[in-house]
């Protein structure tokens, strides 16, 4: 287990260092999420007070759409020189490839969130009153679930020629329970009422995270097996 973790960190560090060098993916993700916010502020007049109600949904819309960009890259980038095969012949457990990619993608998406959520609040003139700890916990739990299943399906979709199109089609239906929970819980925290419900949503999301993490962790080796 320790070795799996160490290998995973090696792979994640390689991806993140690459990203730090080029800043291509992360830059695109941030610009894209800002653009989504911009388009939404045209679609829903931000000066209108009722628009505050869509803020929780917007947080997740921008997370998912910008996250998809990063997820798409994470395995496509391994196809250059077929380096994924290099990882497959290396003496490592296939799960460590999965874990490494999850960590790298998670870091990318969290960075994007750290930038785009404040921008969202700013542009929609939203004052944050809820409890920060709960808000962060909810965002983190849902983001982990999204990245776990997203990374797994990105690895699956990377086998197809049109993987950029395939990934959202595969991912979004599977994300629906998580997103219901995430949006509801975020809404409760931002509106500061019914915290008990938020906790049970959080539990649902945590259960989802654990279940899918376990499933993906064990099924990943089937994705890495050749025919």
């Amino acid at each position: 287990m320790k070795i799996i973790l160490a290998d995973a960190l090696t792979i994640a560090a390689k991806d993140l260092r690459n990203e730090l060098k080029s800043k291509q993916t992360i830059g695109m993700m941030i610009i894209f999420s800002s653009l989504v916010i911009l388009i939404f502020s045209f679609a829903f007049d931000p000066t209108n007070n009722t628009v505050k109600a869509i803020i929780p949904g917007l947080i997740w819309v921008i997370t998912i759409f910008s996250g998809l960009l990063g997820l798409n890259r994470s395995f496509i980038s391994e196809q250059e020189n077929d380096s994924l095969t290099g990882l497959r012949v290396a003496p490592i457990d296939p799960s460590s490839i999965f874990l490494g990619k999850v960590v790298a993608n998670l870091v990318l998406v969290i960075i994007v969130q750290l930038i785009s959520i404040p921008i969202l609040f700013l542009l929609f003139d939203y004052r944050f009153h809820g409890e920060m700890i709960w808000f962060l916990l909810i965002v983190l739990t849902a983001t982990i679930g999204f990245i776990v299943i997203g990374t797994f399906l990105a690895a699956l979709a990377a086998n197809a020629k049109n993987s950029e199109m395939l990934l959202p089609v595969l991912l979004l239906p599977l994300l629906s329970p998580l997103m219901i929970g995430a949006v509801q819980a975020t809404k409760i925290v931002l509106e500061q009422e019914g915290m008990k419900d938020a906790v049970s949503w959080l539990q649902l999301m945590a259960a989802y995270d654990l279940l899918f993490f376990a499933a993906c962790f064990f099924l990943f080796e089937y994705l890495m097996e050749g025919s």
Binding site: D7, T10, K14, N81, S83, G86
Partner: peptide
Amino acid sequence: YLGHESFLYNSLTPLENLRFYGKLYK
């Protein structure tokens, strides 16, 4: 195993590539 493809990362330098694989191969 040396395949048809190099399995190397274009964005890394030769030393970084070797370092990365070296870590995986312990």
